[in-house]
Design a protein around this nucleic acid. Structure first.
Lengths: 388, 388
DNA sequence: TAACTTAATTAATGATTTGAAAGTTATTTA
DNA sequence: TAAATAACTTTCAAATCATTAATTAAGTTA
């Protein structure tokens, strides 16, 4: 229970100013005062603190509007650095970025072959050590390490409970890394990290609620409300992939029937292709996309159908979570060109009210590094802690 | 953007103390200080204000634990009153309650027959006037009027956009009542109001997130997060009834196929009964329940199947919103005895992780007045404004 | 060039509110 | 009855922002 103290007062104002600078840089002190309602002396004194701490810096003067030129303020992007890790099914990738998400160093290791928890953890550590050595940045300037881990993650304890594609369970990531590095460690599910990264780096402005959906081998999603990840009470919110949309559908790897991902992940697309055109030889989802690009009607049609079903899943999402924006990413969305028309059409068709039909649905603009940037954003959100 | 001011500090602490008293009454000043971390002088001075405002009152002394006896504090339940209105498909009900939800007056009017917006609004006004006259309570002691309206509601403007069962559209409830009464007016969808009422009066303690689901003519739900209604960005969050769970299901009144409510509302139960046992004469859902009570196997089986499908819907809810508690109510849930076993079984079966299988699922303990109390809670939440 | 504007800092004063320490009151216990 | 204990209150110090005003800076405009 956060009491009302002087400290609260101060930190609230400090965060308001810091976030104003972050979202509106370059901006002058006078402008901050005008927009936040704080008085110029208050703004001046807090900005001074921020400058002393190194988080904010002054730059060139701005344009005069009839008087003295304002001194413009910026986030001092290289004041601190963050380490982000994407621990996917096939490899570990690790980056070091500044506060704007600019990547300075990058390492990676393959996860192919048989792995133990210990081996996995030491691969993580080795990559982080390598990044630290390469960058030669003092530990004090690093805010922490964010880890986007595929599978089921317990956020509070920082454990990976189930990592299906590595065939591992119960990996105490946070505990082990804390022993090794004196830094804040955040562990999060990869789709959720990606969602946060999307809301942080995706240029979506001030959106009250957003869901980012990753469609690839599986279907995962993250829910961001007021700039913060919404976990639900068991870190399961947004588990879109195993939403039942067809009582009599195929059996999913989870044991249930008719999960969304049995219709729309890569394998499902291939399967549907083979079923409908039973003269089809071996083919991959990527090849279906490529053939669609070349105008092959069957492939175009299969992708269009896939878009329809994604649209049905998203409509369920709109009716339950009702975000103002949905961002789509992942391997399957590379076929955006053939998927989006039917996705949007289906939502128009099925959403109940005119306002909900207007939900913004779009493809991510962050490319392959979306998850890595998500891992990074886990720590940036802490630092900037948006006030709503 | 809420700045950090002395006022903020004060109101935060005041709300902490007020809510501590509300949830833990009777409680002494010393105990409040201990549990909130505020210092005794701070507690004393704020309690004094609350007593002066009439919201809190002192009662008998408590038991000594080796020193001066503590003075116990209570919410002064008759300091203020609230008017709650349930505008359902068939009638308008109106109550006046005190701060604990105790009902003091009650009126109602039938909505049968052809109605215009004007007639509907004057019925509302007449009921409210009647309540005011009966109770003889001064307007100053009434916090406001909460209205639980079936159908689609725009909360911000306080308009009923679509009232399907009355065949009305676009009723400016808040505007019209504001002209008539100098009171705060809150308009909310009935299922959502019910959800808030459930979390407020249902004795669930401090639950971080809760969904209340109403299964009757339709299926509606409300999402309560940290004691506050979560609306989503278009007042649609929790629109469970039109979640697609079967791509090839029957056509719903909304035009889509396979909506949850085409499987589990009253009509659906009757329809399934007729389909499976095609020698069945006219029957109502209520009769199916009664026959099940008398041991008729067919009816027991139909209700069991219904429970299964409700369970599938709730599992989708668990995976998307992931609340820590789900409370079920509405006419169909009167068959609780035959529904709950399969509901719980299905969730056990289908929920993905062991923690999510543990989601508490239960039937509401508030009876027929759940929606009315929900309407009342719309204003109580404002007054007590839970701090999280 | 003089007069006016706008930006930013500094300083003084005041208001609000919590916090810490000490004091008062009521009760139990030895 | 005195000492101890707990509940509550009073007093004063500290934190912090708002307000006001003065100062400096660096323009623009007449």
């Amino acid at each position: 229970m956060q009491r009302g103290t002087f400290q609260l007062m101060k930190t609230v104002n400090k965060k308001i100013i810091l976030n104003k600078i972050r979202t509106s840089e370059p901006i002058s002190r006078a402008q901050i005062a005008k927009e936040t309602g704080l008085t110029p002396p208050t703004v001046s004194s807090i900005v001074k603190e921020l400058v002393d701490e190194g988080l904010v810096k002054e730059s060139k003067l701005g344009e005069s509007s009839g008087g003295r030129k304002p001194t413009m303020l910026h986030i001092n992007s290289d004041a601190f650095y963050v380490i982000g890790v994407d621990a996917g099914p096939e490899m570990v990738e690790c980056v070091l970025t500044d506060l704007t998400g600019e990547i300075y160093q990058r390492t990676s290791s393959s996860l192919k072959g048989q792995l133990s928890n210990e081996r996995f953890l030491s691969l993580l550590k080795e990559n982080i050590y390598a990044i630290l050595q390469l960058s030669k940045i003092e530990l004090e300037k690093i805010i922490g390490i964010g880890i986007a881990m595929h599978g089921v993650v317990d956020v509070e304890s920082g454990r990976s409970l189930i990592a299906p594609n590595l065939n591992l369970r119960d990996i105490p990531i946070k505990d082990e890394l804390s022993k090794e590095f004196d830094l804040t460690i955040k562990v999060e599910n990869d789709a959720r990290a990606m969602a946060l990264g999307e809301s942080w780096f995706g240029g979506h402005g001030d959106v009250d609620s957003m869901v980012a959906v990753n469609i690839g081998h599986g279907v995962g999603a993250g829910v961001v409300i007021n700039g913060k990840l919404y976990h639900g009470s068991h870190d399961m919110a947004g588990e879109l992939g195993h939403m039942t949309i067809d009582l009599h559908g195929d059996v999913c790897m989870c044991g249930n029937r008719g999960c969304l991902q049995t219709f729309v992940n890569g394998d499902a697309i291939v399967k549907r292709m083979k079923e409908q055109y039973n003269d089809v030889e071996e083919i991959t989802a990527k090849e279906i996309y490529e053939r669609a690009l070349q105008g092959e009607a069957a492939c175009v049609q299969i992708l269009g159908e896939t878009g329809n079903i994604i649209g049905i899943g998203l409509t369920n999402l709109i009716h339950l979570i009702n975000p103002s924006k949905i961002v789509l990413g992942g391997g399957v969305m590379k076929s955006e060109k053939f998927l989006m028309p039917t996705i949007l059409e289906t939502i128009q068709d099925r959403a109940l009210t005119s306002k909900s039909k207007e939900t913004a649905v779009m493809v991510t603009k962050l490319g392959d590094d979306a998850t890595l940037l998500g891992a990074v954003s886990l720590l940036l959100v802490e630092l900037f802690d948006p006030v709503s």
